[in-house]
Every structure is written in structure tokens, then in C-alpha cells.
């Protein structure tokens, strides 16, 4: 019997190291390069005003607030909806939601947020509202897909052993759907970080503000700092989300 035990092969350690440390090292290098680049520049007064640590920190904080808040709200709304849509009796909803969602994907983020702002007014709240509308689909879809792809024989087993419907959902179906749901959360988070850069047009000064200042005032250092910081932030958040995903995935999968 000992022969047919299937052990998971240990990953090669260099590749594993690259997977865990590659991105942080890359980001650190980019950060240092950016710092060196800016330090080497002779900054004029406009550039100095934008490119100081305190102001940039504020931009990053606003950016993160927008992305985090909207993602949280999306999770709270879309996960329960996704669960409901896969319950017996509401299953006919699922294909409708997916088709509508796919159509919705064709709507450009810039257009959608501008429309929301036009209807709800300029400011933090309406931007969050716009972000929520735009990023709901990945979580909703992944929750539904994640639950649907749970092996139905496991559900049958669970029910056959006497777990109630609720117990089956919370102990079997949801834990098994977690990796897929988390992938959706990660996608939504990245969409929100990306779309939040557009918030500068609607009165919130996230990192997009720095980029757009750079474009409008034709100041390359400002533009580069804004673009690199926004990209770095997105990559960092994506990396952290990946780590969380790994940690929250139930063992044994």
C-alpha cells in the first residue's frame, strides 16, 4: 500500500523563492530607481510642489481608501447574491446574471463612472459607487462559478450523511469555492485600483491626479512618478492579494 501513496512533489526551491520574493524585490528595485531618477532631476517649483513625500503619501492613501472601500462593499453585496443565485429554486437566475454581466463588461469603465458621477454628483461617495458597479461582476461570477463547480457528489455525500442545507453550504460548498471566489476578489481589487486612477477627474486626488498633472503641465518627472507609483501600488496589492489567496485556500486542495 505504501507504494501507491501519492505525495505532492516538493516544488523546486529556486522557483518557489522566485514566486514569493520575486515581486517584492522587483518593486524595491523599481522604487529605488524611481527615487534615484527624481533625485537626479533639477525640479522646478511646480514639480517640487507635487513631488514631496507628504503629498504623495496622501495620494496613495486616498487611492487605497477608494479601492479598499469599494472592494469591501462589492464583497458584501456580490458574495451573498452569488450564493443566492446558485441555490435550488433560484438557479434559473444564474445564466441570466452571467449573460447580463457579460454584456455589462462591454461598458467602458471611464464611461460608467462618468455616468454615475453625472447622476450622483462629484466626490468620494459617487466614485466608490461607480467602482462598486464596475467591479461587482468578477466577484458575483466567481462566487457562482465557484459554487457551481463544487463536485455535486460531495454535496450529495454531505446531505446523505445528515448535514443540513446550511451546514453543507458553510462547511463543504463555501470552503471548496473559496479559491475561485478569492480569485474574483483579487480581480475586483485590481480593477478598482486601476479604475481609481480615473478619480482625479471627479474631484478625488488619488495617484491618477499626479499622472494627469504630469500630462497637463507637461512635466515628465511628475508623470513618471505618478505612473510608476500607480503601477507599483497595483502590483503590490496584487501580490499581497495573491499571498492572502494562498493562505486562505483550504489545505488538501
Amino acid at each position: 500500500m505504501a507504494v501507491d501513496v501519492m505525495a505532492t512533489p516538493a516544488e523546486h526551491s529556486p522557483r518557489r523563492a522566485l514566486r514569493w520574493f520575486g515581486m517584492p524585490v522587483f518593486l524595491a528595485v523599481v522604487g529605488l530607481a524611481l527615487y534615484a531618477y527624481v533625485s537626479a532631476q533639477d525640479l522646478d517649483s511646480i514639480e517640487q510642489r507635487t513631488l514631496n513625500a507628504a503629498r504623495l503619501t496622501d495620494r496613495v492613501i486616498e487611492h487605497l481608501q477608494l479601492a479598499a472601500l469599494s472592494t469591501l462593499i462589492v464583497i458584501v453585496i456580490a458574495v451573498p447574491l452569488g450564493i443566492l443565485a446558485t441555490r435550488r429554486g433560484a438557479r434559473f437566475v444564474a445564466p441570466v446574471v452571467l449573460v447580463l454581466g457579460n454584456l455589462g463588461q462591454a461598458i467602458p469603465s471611464l464611461g460608467l463612472i462618468t455616468l454615475v458621477v453625472l447622476l450622483a454628483g462629484v466626490g468620494f461617495k459617487s466614485i466608490v459607487f461607480g467602482l462598486v458597479a464596475y467591479s461587482a461582476l468578477p466577484i458575483l461570477r466567481n462566487t457562482m462559478v465557484g459554487l457551481q463547480q463544487v463536485d455535486q457528489t460531495l454535496v450529495k455525500s454531505a446531505r446523505g450523511m445528515g448535514l443540513s442545507g446550511w451546514q453543507t453550504l458553510t462547511r463543504i460548498e463555501l470552503p471548496l469555492a473559496v479559491p475561485v471566489i478569492l480569485a474574483g476578489v483579487r480581480t475586483a481589487l485590481i480593477i478598482n485600483i486601476g479604475t481609481a486612477t480615473l478619480s482625479t477627474f471627479f474631484g478625488v486626488q488619488a495617484l491618477g491626479y499626479v499622472i494627469f498633472q504630469g500630462i497637463q503641465l507637461d512635466r515628465t518627472p511628475v508623470l513618471v512618478v505618478g505612473a510608476v507609483m500607480a503601477s507599483g501600488l497595483a502590483l503590490l496589492v496584487d501580490y499581497l492579494a495573491g499571498v492572502v489567496e494562498e493562505l486562505l485556500t483550504p489545505r488538501g486542495l
Binding site: I193, G194, T197, L198, G208, I211, A227, V228, A234, L235
Partner: peptide
């Protein structure tokens, strides 16, 4: 993963 506005901007210089 890179925000679109940032990617567009990066090629302006």
C-alpha cells in the same frame, strides 16, 4: 495589472 492611465502615461515621454 497596471492601471490603464498609468500605462498610457508611461509611453508619453
Amino acid at each position: 495589472t497596471i492601471p490603464s492611465l498609468a500605462l498610457f502615461a508611461m509611453f508619453i515621454p
